[in-house]
Amino acid sequence: MPGLSHRLQGWAERRLPALTRYRRPESLPIELHRRRIYIVPTGFGLGFSVLLLVMLVGALNYNNNAALLLTCLLGAASAASMLVAFRSIDGLRLEQVRAGHAVAGESIELTFTLQSGRPRSAIRLDLGDAGAAFAMDGRAAALVKLALPTEFRGWLSLPRLRLWSSWPLGMFRAWSWLHPTQSVLVWPRPELSGPTPRAAADDARHMRLHRGEELATLRDYQAGDPQRHVAWKASARHDSLLVKDFEQPQSQPQWQLDWRQLHGLSDEARIARLARWLNEAQQQRRSFSLWLPGNEIGSGSGALHYARCMDALACLP
């Protein structure tokens, strides 16, 4: 059956663009309004209306006006709940979507920012099989986190989201499709194992000292040390001057990761290997540089640098 309904849906989107207009991607922010909110009774709503019908016929047959009044009240309240359901998602704005980081095959965490001018309850956002429910207090934006499964590296455009609510009685479901034009970047999946990079930078030239940021040790003064590095307080308790030493020999050699060195591999294999090396470099806190066709990233370290390199890898054709 899913196949059939998929085909039906495809047909509807082709043939009835007006009806399905809002299923096409649109730019953020998306505000829900009456022309794109649909309401259908839920299964419970249908069952309840059958019950109301039974109560109505019973009350009419037994000429029992009090029971009829009760039935009418219940029926009118159910009907009014339809409007409440509509109102609970009407005017809601999807402001932005932020994506986390994930490699292909894992789920990527999306954070949706929704804004509303008044308090709302029991709103649900579905993304494929994942769903989340949230309430809004009318002032602060609601941040909804959902996981989106990924398959391949590269840009992944967001699928259609469904925003719905069956507030307040669960008899009617008001829903609307959201299809933001946004895409999220999925990083390549690193290979599981393989050789370490040829350490072109293993020679002593690269064992240079670099100035760390933290105080490493105190050592005796040598001629030529800058005065502002002298540890005056510590020196006062010693015979000789002590100097704060900020410099440390770099513990790990720098890696120069280069696309061109990986001969004899397919593009994807090269990307997977580079991704693994990037991961290892990041784990070992090495600094590294990356050369890719059309993109050269200089030496650096840290999460931001790592993310930049991974992004570049992900974006390769």
Binding site: L60, L68, L69, C72, G75, A76, A77, A80, S81, V84
Partner: peptide, 17 residues
């Protein structure tokens, strides 16, 4: 509140069913 809002419609239906 829902019941109160539904009351006018309920009364109308009661009169006219």
């Amino acid at each position: 509140a829902l019941l109160a809002a539904a009351l006018p419609l309920a009364l109308l239906a009661f009169l006219l069913v």
